Computed example of a mutant assay.
Amino acid sequence: MTFETQQPRVIKVSGGVSIGGAPVSYTAFMAALVAILAFVPASIVVGGMGGGWPLHDVIHPLLGLLLGPIAGPIASAIGILIGGVIAPYTNLGPWAPLMGAMSAFAVGMVMQPNRSLWFVPWIITLAANLIYLWQALSFGISFPLWLSNVITIDVALILIAIPQIRNWSIARIRTGGVGLKTYIGFFIVFFFGSTAGIQLNWVPSFATNPWPAEVWPVLIPIIAVERLAFSAIGALIGVGVVSALRRSPLAKATMAGY
């Protein structure tokens, strides 16, 4: 089952208030959803400021897909800021908005019609990855230990950089129906968005609050499980939401990627 024959519903902005082609109401709703999900801890925080990792980390890539690379990051950042106030036990600190914004931005850029725009979040993530290496080595963290912690980010960078994998995933998201192949496409793109967000968050977080070497081994399985699980859950939600939106009368944001 596919949706290739359906006509997309695109918002035509003529005097209405919009952000990056998405109505302000869409952006506000998604920001509110992020804030609400801050009440639900989805994982643990090792050496962090909060008492639990917020569940909203699951949906930031989806916001980039639904709202685009401008409104999506704005909704994510605002939602995290509000969530940090109303649910302080999952507050990840002052740099947390970078995580959500980058996750949404990465997916939004990958899914734009211009096939070269994926390179923008890719190069930002790679640069953050290398800066993080310099930070770790300067703090006495060995290269193998650093690599073990960023292996999920590196895998995501490699996957999304392979044209056949990237283009296939984009095509599945845009035209695929509800099925395993579509889910895999969502997972690959969302995995890149999720890891890009966490990598960008790590750089300023480590600069302002470096965690000692003994904490790093504990982080290895937690990071891998979180990024894989959050991407898998987000992809599952994404398949359902996009399928429902295609059947609904709701207009599609101009820069939406589905």
Results as ranks from 00 to 15, higher is better:
I80Y: 07
G140H: 10
P144C: 09
A128W: 00
V155A: 06
W146C: 11
F143Q: 03
G100E: 05
Y89T: 11
L130Q: 03
G52V: 00
A87E: 08
A87I: 05
L147S: 03
S148L: 15
I59A: 13
D154R: 01
V85A: 15
L65F: 03
T90Y: 08
N91W: 12
W95H: 06
I74T: 09
I124F: 15
L92P: 03
G64L: 06
W146M: 08
P121K: 02
L63N: 12
V58M: 13
I70F: 05
N149W: 00
P121N: 09
V120I: 15
I131C: 10
G83M: 00
V110H: 04
G52H: 09
P144M: 09
L130Y: 02
L81M: 10
G64H: 07
S138P: 00
N149C: 08
V150C: 03
I80R: 02
Y89K: 06
Y89E: 14
G72P: 10
P144R: 06
G84F: 11
G93D: 08
L98C: 09
L98H: 02
L137I: 14
M109N: 08
P144G: 14
V110I: 14
I86P: 12
A87M: 10
A128M: 09
N91V: 08
F139E: 13
I153A: 07
L65C: 07
L126H: 03
L147A: 12
I78F: 08
V120S: 05
N149I: 04
F119E: 02
D154W: 11
A156V: 07
P73G: 06
L137Y: 09
S76Q: 10
I141S: 11
H60R: 02
M99Q: 15
S103W: 01
A96V: 07
A106E: 01
L81K: 02
I123S: 13
S148G: 15
A87W: 04
V150F: 08
L117V: 13
A104S: 15
I86M: 14
W53N: 11
F139V: 04
F105Q: 02
P69Q: 07
D154F: 14
P97T: 05
L81D: 02
L147N: 08
A71H: 02
S142V: 12
P69K: 01
I80V: 10
L55D: 05
A127K: 01
G100F: 08
V85I: 15
S142E: 14
I151E: 04
W118I: 11
A87C: 11
I141R: 04
H56E: 07
I59W: 00
Y132D: 14
W118H: 04
W122C: 11
I124K: 03
L55W: 00
I123Q: 08
V107G: 03
I124R: 05
F119L: 15
I70R: 04
